[in-house]
């Protein structure tokens, strides 16, 4: 997964300019896709486009070797601290599994 960093802020969200120093020279590097659950929710009342897969977990994964976190989706139930593995991209969503 790509993370972007400048002035100590590391994020998976790409910016045109650094919010701290204004530079357009934002460092880009690859980090492993796997990580641990930083926090999570289990969605029982979804928007209409996700009704067919509910309930599902939306997870905030602390990636390895970076301060950046990434939002993903899991079918399994999880808790904070669980190790999770990247399981591919589905229609723009990052999928994870235990």
């Amino acid at each position: 997964m790509k993370v972007y960093s400048c002035c100590g802020h590391e994020t998976v969200v790409k910016r045109h300019y650094c919010p701290s120093c204004g530079s357009s020279e934002i460092e880009e590097r690859e980090v492993p896709n796997d990580g641990t659950i930083y926090s999570y929710t289990r969605i029982h009342v979804p928007p209409v486009e996700f009704e067919h897969i509910a309930p599902y977990s939306v997870v905030l994964v602390q990636l390895e070797g970076t301060k950046a976190k990434v939002t993903g989706r899991m079918t399994e139930e999880v808790t904070i601290g669980d190790r999770v593995q990247f399981a591919g991209i589905d229609n723009g969503a990052y999928l994870y599994k235990k």
Partner: peptide, 24 residues
């Protein structure tokens, strides 16, 4: 236009994620 929206996150979902971490 983000992976987060495609993950199926909702507004109550965001505050659910926040609440679990706040509890922790």
């Amino acid at each position: 236009d983000s992976n987060e929206k495609h993950a199926g996150l909702t507004f109550p979902g965001f505050f659910g994620v926040l609440a679990h971490r706040y509890f922790h």
